[in-house]
Simulated scan of single mutants.
Amino acid sequence: MSNNYSNTTLVPEAKNGLSKFKTEVASEMGVPFKDYNGDLSSKQCGSVGGEMVKRMVKQYENNI
């Protein structure tokens, strides 16, 4: 049985860019992301991830 992890970065070179993007979005939303995020609620983390996806989709749609 193979392990398929959905949270792996498909393009390893993009990892730093995604991390920076996550930090920027979290900062704009007032979510205190740092090295350890275990004190954040699932709602806070999910809202940052959702906003990231929303912005990526919008950027893609603007480019087509």
Rank of each mutant, 00 (worst) to 15 (best):
K58N: 07
C45M: 11
K34A: 05
K34Y: 03
E24Q: 15
K15E: 02
E24N: 10
K15W: 02
G38L: 00
E13N: 00
K43R: 12
V25T: 15
A26F: 04
K58Q: 13
K22R: 09
S19H: 03
N16I: 02
Y36F: 03
Y36W: 06
S47M: 10
G30P: 09
E61M: 13
S47C: 09
K43D: 12
G17C: 01
P32D: 05
G50W: 11
N37S: 01
G17F: 02
L40C: 09
G38E: 01
S47N: 14
N37R: 02
G49F: 14
V31I: 13
E24F: 06
Y36K: 04
K15P: 00
D35H: 12
C45A: 13
D39V: 02
M52N: 07
K43S: 15
G38R: 04
E61H: 13
K43F: 13
Q59S: 15
V53E: 09
V48E: 05
G38I: 00
Q59A: 14
F33W: 09
F33Q: 08
M56R: 08
F33E: 06
G17A: 00
T23Q: 04
G49Y: 12
G50M: 00
M29V: 07
K58R: 15
K43E: 15
F33T: 14
G30C: 10
S41E: 02
C45T: 14
V57S: 08
S42I: 14
G46V: 12
G50E: 07
K34G: 12
L18D: 01
S27C: 09
V25W: 12
N37L: 00
S27I: 06
P32G: 05
V57P: 10
R55P: 03
G50H: 04
